[in-house]
Design a protein around this nucleic acid. Structure first.
Length: 994
DNA sequence: CCTGTGATAGTTTTT
DNA sequence: CTATCACAGG
């Protein structure tokens, strides 16, 4: 066995503990492992092992993950080893998507219509809101929603604990009941229902999982009660379960994840083989050290070993910045410095900026945009949530399920049909009262068979009849004709919908500013639908295995599956086939970053109120969140904290309590010097070849600052440092703005002294960066790049002008706007990957981020201009404003040129038509300098009124923490082993296979 | 009485 | 970016 194991290629890449986990014969295996210990790799390998060595059929294996991304990645990895055939057969996906598959195949056994739809967030919210209003319930609909969700997510296992002192508001139960009733009537399941109903199914009809040999769960610490039940039920035939998890990375408590499930598992399966993975292959030792310092503040947690395999590496940095804007600028400068100083070894692709909440990205995006760095945003807004897409989806949902009142309600007046909110609301109420669907109410009314009580003006009725009703019923007919082999496809259906709605024209009239971009989103949507159809047809994806004597329903229509996919994936698939990979910086929420890693990680806004979030209920979870963020870093880790929060710039902000106690001892105050040993250390961690010193220095621009010294290390808090300021009256403006107004040098000395070098160095660097890139510039530059360059130049000019105003003399000559090709180089460079200065290369979608920046810029410029009553400049946004909202995970979509035209219908049906790499369309107008200048001011000193929103910080959050005790680590009754579930590797119990 | 518009304030994390 | 409010116009 051992000899054979050594030969086995699967096992070669594993260490001893991992190998034991992969090959364990125990029927239940619990793998506990810290970050970076190869959890997913181990789990994947175990799947391979079970197929290849144990001989299970791929179709008899269930692998459940928590997020879509994890599912995709695992699928890919398994496919690589076992081949696409296996990959397809394994039942692999998120809990929700697996549950949906089973429900649509076997749901009829529990009386579920197989054509059920999935109620998304918006649906649930709308329904509950309506119920609350109707009954005048004195509850916050949002609260009711989460209350209901929690109730469902808990599952039965936890239920025997209703003896709480708090008498629940009876209207909550009533709300729950009605909500459920409503969903049922519309044949909808919400996210929790998918799991609840699936549990029901597997209980009552175990035959449909009688084939299951093994169940594997990733990120087990994030499972909630109902998912635990689901896991057990999936495994009910053979009881073979493998779980992987890390309690320290449990960050989904707010979604009812229960760490307790670990103990439950050990209690329910006493023979579980427990394995810890202790080596960390990801991060440098010093990153691990600091991360551990953070997580160890949690006294209740179980100590775990994290053995670094890498060298010490550069000390993690905790940087204090003056303002959020400065924070963004510093991040940019530090990214540039790192990329430069490492020669070709690091690209922008290696950098991630991780945020507690998506809304914190504004400043970061502004700074990146100003510097012309492309980025991709993960988390935050979803493609399918875009207005124009949502409308189409609601039409499709109405076509698929006319009884979906909420979908109908949202499209009744889109495009405008002169029917207002009040009428719609009344119609819904009437339908609900009659216990019929809105759709049949409308149809009956228009056909004259039954007059609606609600007054419907003839004009409305006309439009309803000819537009809404006709379109939907026509398309319903067509939708029924869509089968695998007919020439009617989903895409045709959508295209017909588009033309019947005159959607393009609708967008033009509704969004005169940015209809083009929105129309392109629609094209993207078509392309996604097309991809979906192709994948569904070619791969027969998602098919559950046939089981003897068990019949499943297979009429799962393409449309239904498409809609389910949209609801469950909630993010457009990243389609990197063919499209050139672009090296761009990643901005992500911490939650969305789980399971991922980057060589360089920034965690900005580490202040109380952000992390821990002011509304967070569970402080330990917030700490774990920070721990997760920090442990994403492989080689360089930077935390930062501005002196003033972003909200209105007036609120002072305190360093997060999670790092405060050892802020100065554990962290460096500024970015490390990238000397040779450091560089080599990083190269070693990443397993990359470090360019020679000479090669690196040859590429450094002449005035490049090799150190992190462009920003003061201890920014001085002007307000505190100078008591006078306070007595002179507090002005709710940004610190910088204040300074500009306070030109006098009286008691401002300290501030001025601190400020001068900052500004000066900063602008110089910008120019420098510009110059050096420009120097090596090849001739070609795309229009879009040119435009970016223009605005960057303008911004730089403004920057300089601002600096000049402050009597700081700049030695450099003024650069003219059209000299700006530097950024053009960057853009062009991405097209030739190995171009010299490739460090700066990967700069794929500058148009996107730049455009966002510009948009924000021109808007605020306009606003400021208006405020000042200055003569308004012609406002021609150079780029479609909608870009600013476009946070599609794949940056590609952003770059889609507008060359796609409707008449080009040959091309528009091709698969890649949306991923052309041709240059962006020419600018429609040039940025005007004054505008940009205003912009720069705006960026550095937003002129917003101060709000004291962040009052609620650590303390008050703590006091609220008592309300919901983290489900915890309190020792479950009895069994001693439950209290210390994971022994070190050395204590190995004999395992008895069953 | 109803619809459309403008202004304003508040925005965790995700299946 | 979106829910809510006040107001003008149909």
């Amino acid at each position: 066995m051992t000899a054979a194991q050594a030969e086995n290629p699967i096992l070669k890449s594993l260490n001893a503990a991992q190998r034991r986990a992969v090959t364990s014969n125990a029927s239940t295996v619990a793998i506990l492992a810290g970050p970076g210990s190869g959890k997913t790799h181990t789990l994947t390998s175990r799947v391979v092992w079970l197929v290849q060595q144990t001989g299970y059929q791929p179709s008899d294996i269930v692998v459940a993950t928590f997020t879509v991304k994890a599912a995709r990645e695992m699928k890919e990895r398994i496919g690589k080893v076992l081949g696409p055939d296996c990959e397809r057969k394994i039942v692999l996906g998120t809990f929700h998507s697996i549950a949906r598959r089973y429900l649509s195949a076997y749901g009829k056994h529990i009386g579920l219509d197989s054509k059920f739809g999935i109620a998304d967030d918006g649906d649930s919210r709308a329904v509950i809101q309506r119920i609350c209003k109707r009954h005048d319930f004195n509850i916050d609909p949002g609260y009711a929603r989460s209350w209901i969700s929690k109730k469902k997510a808990k599952g039965h296992a936890t239920e025997p604990a209703p003896n709480k002192k708090q008498p629940e508001n009876p209207s909550l139960n009533e709300c729950y009941r009605e909500y459920q009733e409503h969903l049922e009537r519309s044949n909808l399941l919400d996210y929790d229902d998918l799991l609840v109903r699936c549990v029901e199914l597997l209980r009552e009809y175990p035959a449909c999982v009688s084939n299951i040999q093994a169940v594997l769960i990733d990120e087990y610490q994030d499972t909630n009660g109902i998912q635990y039940e689901l896991m057990k039920l999936f495994a009910q035939a053979r009881q073979r379960i493998t779980i992987v998890g890390d309690p320290d990375q449990s960050i989904y408590g707010w979604r009812s994840a229960e760490i307790r499930n670990l103990y439950r598992l050990l209690r329910d399966y006493p023979d579980t083989d427990e394995i810890s993975l202790e080596e960390n292959y990801r991060s440098s030792q010093s990153i691990l050290d600091v991360s551990l310092t953070v997580i160890q503040q949690d006294k209740k947690r179980y100590q775990k070993v994290l053995l670094p395999v890498h060298t010490k590496g550069a000390r993690p940095v905790l940087r204090k910045l003056k303002s959020s804007a400065a924070e963004g600028d510093w991040i940019v400068s530090e990214i540039k410095r790192a990329v430069m100083m490492f020669g070709d070894m690091l690209t922008y692709e290696d950098v991630a900026i991780l945020l507690r909440s998506a809304s914190l990205s504004r400043h970061i995006e502004a700074a990146l945009g100003k510097a012309g760095l492309a980025y991709r945003m993960i988390g935050g807004h979803k493609f399918y949530e875009r207005k124009e897409i949502k409308i189409l989806l609601d039409y499709l949902r109405a076509i698929y399920q006319p009884d979906n009142n909420d979908a109908i309600a949202r499209i009744i007046n889109v495009p405008r049909r002169g029917i207002g909110d009040t009428t719609i609301k009344r119609l819904i109420e009437e339908a609900e009262q009659l216990k019929i669907s809105l759709w049949s109410l409308l149809r009956k009314h228009c056909q004259g068979s039954r007059k609606a009580m609600t007054k419907i003006l003839p004009k409305m009725e006309q439009k309803l009849n000819t537009e809404l009703l006709r379109i939907i019923s026509n398309l319903q007919t067509q939708a029924q004709q869509i089968t695998e082999d007919s020439q009617h496809t989903l895409v045709d259906l959508i295209e017909k919908l588009l033309s019947q709605l005159d959607f393009k024209q609708y967008l033009e009239s509704e969004y005169p500013e940015d209809h083009e971009q929105r129309w392109q989103n629609v094209q993207e949507f078509l392309s996604l639908a097309n991809d979906f159809v192709r994948d569904a047809a070619n791969l027969e994806d998602e098919m559950l295995p046939e089981i003897e004597d068990v019949d499943q329903v297979k009429d799962d229509s393409i449309l239904g599956r498409f809609l389910a996919n949209v609801a469950l994936a909630s993010d457009a698939q990243k389609n990197d086939d063919g499209a050139e990979k672009k090296a761009v910086i990643t901005i992500s929420t911490i939650h969305a970053a789980k399971g991922l890693e980057w060589p360089i990680v920034f965690v900005p806004s580490v202040y109380a109120g952000s992390i821990p979030h002011s509304r967070a209920e569970d402080l330990d979870e917030e700490r774990r969140l920070l721990y997760v963020a920090m442990t994403r870093a492989q080689a360089l880790l930077y935390l930062s904290c501005p002196l003033y929060g972003s909200q209105g710039m007036g609120t002072k902000v305190e360093l997060s309590p999670f790092v405060l106690p050892f802020a100065s001892s554990a962290f460096a105050k500024q970015g490390a010097s990238f000397n040779r040993p450091i560089l080599e250390g990083v190269a070693k961690i990443l397993g990359r070849d470090l360019p020679s010193e000479k090669a690196i220095f040859a590429k450094l621009p002449s005035m490049f600052s090799p150190e992190d010294n462009l920003f003061p290390i201890d920014p001085i808090d002007t307000r505190d440092a100078e008591g006078l300021e306070d007595s002179e009256g507090y002005r709710p403006k940004g610190p910088k703005r204040q300074r500009l107004n306070n030109q006098g040098y009286g008691n401002d000395d300290e501030e001025a002294a601190e400020e001068r070098p900052w500004k000066k160095e900063y602008s110089t660097t910008m120019e420098q960066a510009s110059n050096f890139t420009m120097a090596s510039l090849p001739g070609f530059m795309s229009a879009g790049a040119h435009q970016n360059a223009l605005s960057a130049a303008a911004a730089a000019e403004a920057e300089k002008a601002a600096a000049a105003k402050k009597t700081v003399k700049m030695g450099t000559t003024r650069r003219k706007a059209d000299q700006s090709s530097l950024l053009g180089f960057v853009t062009t460079a991405s097209k030739k990957p190995a171009a010299p200065g490739g460090g700066f290369g990967g700069f794929g979608g500058p148009d996107a981020s730049m455009a966002r920046y510009q948009l924000a810029a021109s808007r605020s410029a306009a606003r400021m201009a208006a405020e000042k009553k200055a003569p308004e400049l012609p406002q021609l946004p150079a780029v479609d404003p909608s870009l600013a909202k476009h946070k599609l995970a794949s940056g590609n979509a952003l770059n889609r040129p507008s060359v796609i035209k409707m008449e080009d219908d040959e091309g528009s049906k091709k698969r890649y038509h949306c991923f052309s790499s041709s240059p962006p369309r020419p600018a429609e107008a040039e940025a005007v300098k004054e505008e940009e200048q205003a912009t720069t001011q705006e960026v550095s000193a937003p002129d917003r009124p101060a709000t004291s929103f962040h009052r609620t910080t650590f303390v008050s959050a703590a006091s609220r923490g008592g309300v919901r005790r983290p489900v915890g680590l309190g020792p479950p009754p009895g069994l001693d082993r439950l209290r210390k579930p994971f022994k070190p590797l050395t204590i190995t119990r004999p395992t008895k296979p069953q």
